[in-house]
Design a protein around this nucleic acid. Structure first.
Lengths: 340, 340
DNA sequence: CTGAAAGCGCTTACAG
DNA sequence: CTGAAAGCGCTTACAG
């Protein structure tokens, strides 16, 4: 039993008014009298009238759909970003189409294009690492507002919503210095990763401001940061003549690899070597000792990005907004860097 | 610089044919000559013609958008489901709108309704626990195909894509029996959780087939299963006169709570008490000893659900499909139940 | 304060 | 094999 779908025309006919009036009444157009508005709205409610968003969107060139592209949806932090996006979008009457780029630049471009084809009103993107050529992304900017969140790039002139990467890393490293560590290694990614570079700058600044000389032997870069790489890098660090007394890994998974390796070798954490990660993943509380790490407020980043893009969608002036919104992070101190 | 958008009419005008013909050519209508088709397709490619899916959808009552509702997007397993859904949808030219119900039945209904309003061609849903009243869900069935995946319910007559919950639990418990355990406790949810009940039946069957008597003192039910509850329940079990020699928790997080508590009390795992979880979450490999658990192929469930719903969307007969597709799981044996 | 009419971009039954 | 015409449900400039 298919139920009959109520249209604007149906409402109008029942009330002996024109569809134009019915439309305007529902949209609170100032021209319409209060009584008419009331009548129309009441009937709409009673008949359970549902506006056909397709017709609406088709007519007004608005879909009320946002596109979201992320590299990898299975990362816990990514899901908190998405949660923030979904919640805020829902509040504002938008729906969200999600795609994964799998850190594949070609797929990223493809996703971007099908998003546009589906008529999204704006795109929120966390860019794939290794995105060197940004031309395809720049093209989008002519069509629809774009906002980069979390994984951003200063090569793209659009609003960016990110965490204070540099400061977060600075705080993490300074914390290690404060507990008495003097030889702090870092495990980071190669220079193609924007976030990794920013965290590295925070590391450098913390050393400099505390008069600790930089030693490139304990600055390790890997292409694909992971638990496995954390283990490998730890073994390299332990093979040095002058071993570090602390390791700052720029992701939790790498930091967990570090901890696992140290434990296997019965190296005391944090006494011999302290460990700090980045992300406050769920794993960071499961590992023992629990991992000191940076909490990134994913939900807030997501909701901020949505608020921002809706503003840009509704703004009439076409000037490309090009600002960076930085969300504050929190250092969470746990057992891997602090003995109770 | 807004770029001019190419429409079907533009294509037609350039080729001196009618828009109708252009439309048919692009859609490979059998009536159209091969040469015309070729001409139109070539021009479309050259001009970078992008069909307006809004107009298309508006006209044909098809959006090529699927709605997905899950209780909680931050669970790792849920993200693997979503990944499977996204991949298969992408292959088939569909986009996916995602919403979270947060295990809130009211929100679930609300999401369901806005999904329909956005003109989705079908809905894939993992239902919120505590969904007792299914009337609102049943209403959807009149409008658009619905498929339940992972968290399903036999009260709703539609296709269900689930894992072999009962058998998975059976295998887990039988494994414990095989390694010599005789007094196996279970930590499950209350009877409102469909999956929990099925896993419980697997537990019961494993006991029965191995002639182990059921003891209700070691069958514990909680409303909201979690690591915290795992800890609490473990303490209850340890306070019994006859302690269990194995604990089967129906989620990994609860199992991790069990392990943490046992370790704190220096109870040997698995010698004194073996532990088995369910899900193969990332955490299950971080905890030490590593957790024996059930791997659920999330991606396969997701892709299967998409294949199924697209079939139903395209099928002309309106008979409500009401079949259950069971996806096989795998018991992953790790240190929490097996000493190397 | 309200209505008639046009049109958004496409598809499809009808006609030839 | 192709075209003219209608229409999907809505909004909005124009007219009164």
């Amino acid at each position: 039993m298919k139920k009959k779908i109520i249209t604007l025309k149906d409402l109008a006919k029942r009330l002996n008014i024109s569809p134009s009036t019915a439309s305007r009444a529902l949209n609170d157009h100032p021209d319409i009298s209060i009584e008419t508005k009331q009548k129309v709205k009441d009937l709409a409610r009673n008949l359970n009238y549902v506006p056909n968003l397709f017709a609406k969107g088709f007519r007004s060139h608005r879909s009320n759909i946002l596109g979201v592209i992320v590299p990898n949806i299975t990362h816990y932090f990514t899901t908190t970003l998405i949660r923030g996006i979904l919640e805020e979008a829902n509040l504002q009457g938008y729906k969200v189409i999600i795609s994964e780029s799998n850190n594949d630049v070609k797929k990223q471009t493809e996703m971007l294009n099908t998003m546009l084809q589906f008529g999204v009103d704006g795109v929120l993107m966390s860019i794939s690492k290794m995105t060197k050529d940004v031309d395809d992304i720049l093209k989008v900017l002519n069509t629809v507002p774009l906002i980069l969140f979390d994984k951003a790039s200063n090569k793209i002139p659009c609003t960016q919503v990110v965490i204070n990467e540099e400061e977060a890393a600075f705080n993490a490293v300074e914390h290690l210095i404060n507990i008495g560590k003097k030889r702090i290694a870092i495990i980071k990614e190669t220079e193609y990763s924007f976030t990794s570079e920013k965290r590295y700058h925070g590391y450098l600044r913390a050393l400099k401001e505390n008069n600790i000389p930089l030693d490139n032997k304990i600055v390790l870069s890997v292409e694909d940061i992971s638990m496995h790489q954390g283990k490998r890098m730890t073994n390299i660090l332990l093979s040095l003549k002058e071993k570090p007394d602390a390791i700052f890994a720029i992701t939790d998974s790498a930091a967990i690899g570090v901890i696992k390796t140290l434990k296997k070798l019965s190296i005391k954490i944090p006494e011999d070597i302290a460990v700090v990660g980045f992300s406050n993943s769920t794993n960071s509380q499961i590992i023992e000792p629990k991992l000191t790490t940076i909490d990134q407020p994913g939900q807030k980043i997501g909701s901020t990005a949505v608020k921002q893009i809706i503003e840009e969608i509704n703004s009439t002036n076409q000037i490309n907004v090009n600002k960076t919104i930085e969300i504050k992070t929190n250092l969470i101190i746990r057992d891997s860097s602090f003995k109770i």
